[in-house]
Design a protein around this nucleic acid. Structure first.
Lengths: 205, 205, 205, 205
DNA sequence: TTCTAAGCGAGACGGTACGTCCCGTCTTGAC
DNA sequence: GTCAAGACGGGACGTACCGTCTCGCTTAGAA
């Protein structure tokens, strides 16, 4: 439950030290190139460009990833591992609120928000990308929130009959919506507004 | 608020009756083809396929639309004009609730949900498509909800200090989120759950 | 029997004047490029290079030819149409001898010999190229010789029991052999030597 | 004049017995694989396939041969050493005739003819292969015929002014021509026809 | 025994060309 | 002016080999 390194593209555990070992520096260059391109240029992410930018051969990218988006997902996962750590102190409400604000922050920062757009675009186009995106990006983050909600429900801080998934949707999908589609202002205050709006629905009685 | 017919692709007003008139049946065939393809096949929507499916020439499509997604948007707008009509009777809460449930219904129906996915994918890739999608699809629907919310705020049924845009986000973006990304169950009951969750945040005191 | 224009790549007779007409100048540029490349550079003939050299798009080449060698064959056929004309005066022996010497001349000239090597290499690798090469290059030339031989057999100038195909092989294949494999000297005198060697086997009694 | 083992790929004489000795069985497997592939599959001979077929590593092939065709040539040379032995009894004419018929037999047998095609294709594409093919395949065979011709010229059985190379070309190149290009019937009777055709040109007076 | 040179398999890597697909533009004739 | 047909340039795709390389393991004579 800790690691969550990557979706693929790591030395297979079975094949210990046979043949020329993979060049780890190269891998980094590739991930960097993808992240950079996804941030600066638009959505048009292709193996061609990434390879060029990274000074790598296109063939090498094809060896390790099935699509540019999966590559980018790997890059994003490595660069945002911290965002899954969360405080376990304080009330469930405080912790959940903090997570909402964290999410706003991550999605509004250009170096994560922009790549995430590219990722989401890929997820809409390519079923495999969608699966990876959900499994490695969305799901882990939802799980953190779900855990907090369940805690709160057990301690009586929240209502017992909450639909956990729906609550998570209400709290976080607006952020993605603004990032991906409407591009309405996405700042800390939006996170707070959102929380204040949904919070009354969580309390008992 | 009346028209909202189309984004483009209608006989230019300036060019009154010179030369061969546009074939209206052909236009229908093209829109149908786009809608059908967007529903059945995947996201891969292109002029090539649409033209083939419609028995039209690629040139014709290029004459009238800038991208397949804008074409599809036209098709969708014509086929869902009804969804903007809304009852003006009853409490603001009831009317808003009804709109949420309507939205769930539209987005979960295959013949509208699937094309919408294609549309959203296009919006993420192509800036112009995004603008059209927001202007002709999202915004009119948000405006309806905004009107209801403002009504409720005036009559005192809702709190005075609501952030209208945020409320709309909280109520509707989860539906798009499920349609586009998570594909979690999207049925009438989800709309109700969602409403019940957010509604407490709307009431005064 | 006159034309022998090309193997393919000519406007299909059925499709009269619909759509943009083919650019004939472009076709010439492409054939020229292929002939030039086949003469100067080595055997490595690819659509990529030809397109580049001709200032054409690779796609265009693919539209009209199945392989670079078939393209080259087209170029060769257009540039050597004269070589099928032959004198119909004089004894059969004299005419046949002249054809042998013509063949030596054609195959030893760099601008025909070199491309022919490339063509033969293609014929060995690609079954379809081989078929075209035989049908459009070898066979017409063999037919001319066959005709002369049959004439001579009828008039009694040659033996009646000649195996026409074998005679042609004996007279012409040595030339191809020197061109393609051994690269031994290939000049007019070789043609004469060859003729003098085989001629005794043709005469009656 | 006897050995004619191989073109390369034999333990270098300089490096006497240091390090792990070469695996001779492996070498056989590789040569077999090449011969088999050249016979069954088409012309497309590559290190990749051969290695796979032989259960060897690509690296190993690269260590010993410069190209798949040179490898194949080695295989062919080992498998046809017998064909250079020839009877030294009888008239020069009889011996030469026998060699022609032997050649037809070798080239028409699938397990030698097909690989020879691949070899010839390689010779047309790759200058180094061509050199090897001539030096180790064609030249030794031509030398045998040249020897017989010279014998015959000395004894007066043949004309004194023969162009030995041209005679050899006339007698043997038709066989290669049929094998490589025209694929016309290639049987013992063709050899006889060929001989009967050229023989008159060899006799004195 | 240890050392060391070579054989060998596995596999990473850069590279080139391939053949295909779709795009967007254009040119033509017919209506 | 609309429409169908189709040529054309262009870009990216995913694949197949190629030739080189860097490893670790093995083999066997030499120190």
């Amino acid at each position: 439950m800790l690691n969550t390194m990557s979706t693929s593209a790591h030395p297979r555990p079975g094949s210990r030290t046979r043949g020329r070992p993979r060049d780890p520096e190269l891998r980094e260059r590739i991930l960097d190139a993808a992240a950079t391109l996804a941030m600066t240029a638009g959505i048009e992410l292709g193996f061609e460009r990434i390879a060029q930018e990274a000074g790598a051969s296109r063939t090498t990218l094809y060896r390790w990833w099935d699509s540019p988006q999966e590559l980018l997902l790997d890059a994003m996962l490595e660069r945002t591992r911290w965002s899954l750590d969360h405080d376990s102190e304080g009330t469930a409400a405080a912790r959940l609120r903090a997570q909402v604000i964290d999410a706003v922050e991550i999605l509004s920062a250009p170096d994560t928000g922009r790549p995430l757009r590219a990722l989401a675009a890929g997820a809409l186009t390519n079923e495999k990308v969608r699966a990876s995106f959900i499994e490695h990006w969305l799901e882990p983050r939802r799980a953190v929130a779900a855990r907090i909600l369940e805690d709160g429900m057990i301690t009586g801080e929240f209502r017992q009959d909450l639909d956990v998934e729906a609550v998570i949707d209400a709290l976080f999908s607006p952020i993605y919506h603004r990032l991906l589609l409407t591009r309405m202002p996405l700042g800390r205050s939006f996170g707070e507004t959102l929380w204040n709006l949904v919070e009354p629905g969580l309390s008992p009685s």
